[in-house]
Design a protein around this nucleic acid. Structure first.
Lengths: 239, 239
DNA sequence: CGGAAAATTGATAGGCGTCAAAACTCGTGG
DNA sequence: CCACGAGTTTTGACGCCTATCAATTTTCCG
């Protein structure tokens, strides 16, 4: 399972750009962002809402953003979490089709969409990079769909924790001690479960020795391979 | 709910291309396809498989394609159905991340990916069109995620039938008499249900007067607004 | 310290998956 | 034209997983 839908550096793979190994689109995107003003927002503040006109594209500098959509009946589907380095707001039409909300104090850089469009018009490399970022989004959305549709609660939570561990690993952080940074509600809405089920599953993992829970939001992974086997569906559901 | 993940003409909305109303990228894409050879495949034949190298992009001329991914445990998630006019195979990295299989005799046009890339490198309009097609994919994947995660079986099936009716309507076809063209298994794997549940739901809809089932694959919609209310979740689940 | 929000734990019920069998569809060949 | 058989669909019985409702405990800040 992938956690963040948005362009994470390590996942770029602009395959259809076969030649021209020179300065790549990612660098150019970084360059675009580096000149922009930064903005600080508090926990629960919205970056944008579903239906808002698309004016800016954002890059998370610090903090944590979650993107979500609401159902007519008031339920919420979290689409992904954007960690520092991730880009939020790409790939919509003229309007945002998700809402984006900070779930802890966050610093963002804001790139006007018009500037990005103008740059894309003159820079095929940059366009290719954004195209790939979007393709990555799509892969993540499909991955999430698979996770949520065809997995038990335990498998979903295990996959979620594994993904966080992998993420920390890629970033050179501690892959055993995970700071969730989000509430049970956020996790539940991401995994298509209820907070009670998420909580019970955490407890079960603690009892079976897969994890340790120091505080609600600080998880220590004790048996990583066990967690990954469970996530992959290789363990009976009544474990 | 949207049925086909892929670029359907009516859904294009290249918002970030603000100027240049001239010949648009869609026309250019059509032009690219019109020179390609066409290929006929039979029901159950694969167009490509998950993990295959990305060599071609396809446009469905006639028939019906379904794209899907497999879970490690053998379960299948249908990602979408591609009807005539839809494009299949976009937006992956260097490999396909879904499989695509004909579920009835189908005719395709095959555009070599290298040709498309070359064209994109020289044609910002075309690139913009493909970018939008990808964004549309992403919207559809998210829509499907919402459908599948937070809706009851009846709501999902109702949404599915409504979407088919809307699709027929947009195409100027009969919006009441729907030819599914797919098996219960395909529908079940798309909606994240079992074939038994799909079948039972169809039966319940027939009994409650929402639909008529002439043959397994030929559905007549009797109470369209009822179906749409149900799809929207506005009716109690024990209806 | 105090109060609100979040998390945990428990009891219960119901929807949907699973297993099983019967009915139906449709293409093939006699 | 009818019969046959494989594949698909329908129907039924049953049980499990998870949502729901409810109460308590813990966490987090002011």
């Amino acid at each position: 399972m992938l956690i963040s839908g948005y362009s994470e550096s390590s996942s770029f793979n602009p395959s259809y750009r076969q030649s021209e190994p020179g300065p790549n689109g990612q660098d150019r995107l970084s360059a675009l962002f580096s000149g922009t003003p930064s903005r600080r927002i508090q926990t629960k503040d919205h970056v944008f809402c579903e239906g808002d006109m698309l004016r800016h594209v954002y890059r998370v500098e610090a903090g944590l953003i979650c993107t979500y959509r609401m159902m007519p009946d008031g339920r919420r589907q979290v689409m992904g979490f954007a960690f520092p380095g991730d880009i939020v707001g790409l790939g919509t039409g003229s309007d945002h089709n998700t809402s984006a909300q900070a779930i802890r104090p966050t610093r963002l850089r804001c790139l006007p969409f018009a500037v990005l469009c103008e740059a894309m018009r003159n820079d095929a490399e940059l366009t290719a990079t954004l195209y790939e970022a979007l393709a990555e989004e799509l892969r993540n959305a499909r991955e999430l769909l698979l996770s949520v549709c065809h997995r038990s609660a335990a498998e979903r939570v295990a996959a979620f924790l594994s993904a966080l561990a992998q993420r920390n690993e890629r970033r050179g952080l501690d892959s055993s001690n995970i700071d969730l940074g989000m509430t049970r509600t956020d996790i539940a809405d991401f995994l298509g479960l209820t907070i009670e089920t998420v909580s019970r599953t955490f407890t079960k993992f603690r009892i079976t020795g897969l994890i340790d829970i120091a505080q609600c939001t600080a998880i220590r992974i004790v048996d990583r391979s066990g967690l990954e086997r469970l996530a992959a569906g290789n363990i009976s559901r009544n474990d």
